[in-house]
Simulated assay, not measured.
Amino acid sequence: MNLDALPPLRDVIARHGLGADKRFGQHYLLDLNLTAKIARLCGDMSGHAVLEVGPGPGGLTRALLGAGAERLIVIEKDARFLPAMGELALAAPGRLEVVQADALKVDEASLVRGPALLASNLPYNVGTALLIKWLEASPVWWSRLVLMFQKEVAERVVAAPGWDAYGRLAILTAAVSRARYAFTVPARAFTPPPKVDSAVVVIEPLSQAERFDDLEALRIVTESAFGQRRKTLRRSLAQAAIRTPVSSETLLEAAGIDPSVRAETVGPEGFLRLARAWRAAKDGQ
C-alpha cells in the first residue's frame, strides 16, 4: 500500500472506532484541501525532521507526508490511534515514526536531533501549555511552528498592544519569536464541529542574539502587570508579590514606562525593559 491507496479518513475512523474524545479536546480535520494548506506553511521539509503532536486519525499526517516530509515523528497520547498510525507507517516506509507519549512530558530535542519543523492541529485543552513549553525551550530545537488553535488563542498569540487579546502570551511570543496569523478555519470544517472557529499561526524563532533570555523575569513582571488589567501599572505592580527593594514606580521609571498607563497599552519591548529592571533590582538586593 502507498499513500495514494489509503482509504478515506472517515472509513479509518469508522473501522477503528475512533470517535472524538472530549476529554482530550479532539476535533478531526478531514478536509484534504485544508490539511494540505497547513502542510504547505511548513515550507521546504527536505533535510528537516518534522514533528506532529496529536495526529488523531492522520489527516494532517497524510498531508505532511504528501508534501515531502522525509522524517515525520508523530506524538500521540491516545492508544486508540496507534493502529491507524501503523497503517500510515506501512504506506510511507521509513518516513514515519510513531511515539506514544504525553506531549507535555516529551523531550522533543532528543527526538528530532537538530532543528525541526512542527505542525499540529493542537488539542484544545493543552494547546496553550504546549506552546509555552516550546517557546521557553532552551536550546531552541525548532525552526518553525505551524499550529492550529482555537481562534481566540491564536489571537492572543499574535495580539498587539491595545487589542483585547493582548497579554502575557503575546509578550512571551514576541520575546523569542515572530508570529503571524495565517488563516481562519471555520468550526464546520471539523468532525465533530467545535463551538468556536480555529486559526492557524506560523511562528519562527528569533536568532540567539535577538532572543530575550530572562524568561523567568518576564513571567514575573507580566503576571504582576496583567493580574489586574484595569489598574495602572503603578498600582498593579505595587500590589503584586514581585519582591524588590525598590518601588513599582522606580522600576517603571527605570524601564522608561509611564507609571500611570495600563499594561495593555505597553508593547513587548517595554515589558522586556521592565523585566531587565526587575532583575537588576532583584540582584542588587
Score class of each variant (00 low, 15 high):
A20E: 10
K282P: 05
G267S: 12
P57F: 10
V146E: 11
E216W: 08
R95K: 14
V153A: 11
A119P: 02
D213H: 14
R168M: 00
V53R: 06
A137I: 04
R229C: 05
M45S: 08
F190N: 05
N33C: 06
I220S: 04
A182Y: 06
S207M: 00
E204P: 08
T244F: 02
A20P: 14
A119Q: 04
L172F: 04
A67R: 12
L218P: 00
A116S: 14
K133T: 07
D21G: 04
V176P: 03
E152L: 06
P205R: 08
V112T: 15
V157W: 06
Q239M: 13
R273P: 06
A165V: 00
V246R: 01
S198I: 02
V99G: 12
P7W: 11
R40C: 03
V99T: 13
P7F: 06
T61F: 04
S110H: 04
G58Q: 07
V98P: 02
R80P: 05
F226C: 12
F149M: 08
V106I: 03
L145W: 00
D44T: 07
V261Q: 12
A255K: 05
W163M: 13
A154M: 10
Y166F: 07
P205W: 01
V266S: 05
P268R: 09
L135T: 02
T222V: 08
L117T: 05
S46N: 15
P268K: 06
I203L: 12
V158R: 09
P8N: 13
A275W: 04
E108R: 12
L41Y: 04
G19A: 14
A103H: 03
E136V: 03
A189I: 09
L64C: 07
P123F: 08
P194F: 01
L6A: 15
D102T: 10
A137F: 00
F24W: 15
V106W: 03
W278T: 03
K133N: 09
I257V: 11
D213V: 08
R144F: 07
D213C: 10
R273H: 06
Q239D: 15
G167E: 04
R168I: 03
L18F: 05
W134Q: 04
P115Y: 01
V12M: 06
P115T: 10
L30F: 04
E70C: 08
A69Y: 07
A165H: 11
T265S: 15
T35D: 13
R80E: 05
L3P: 03
P161A: 07
S248I: 00
D31K: 03
V146M: 10
L29Q: 09
S110L: 11
L131Y: 02
L251E: 11
D4R: 13
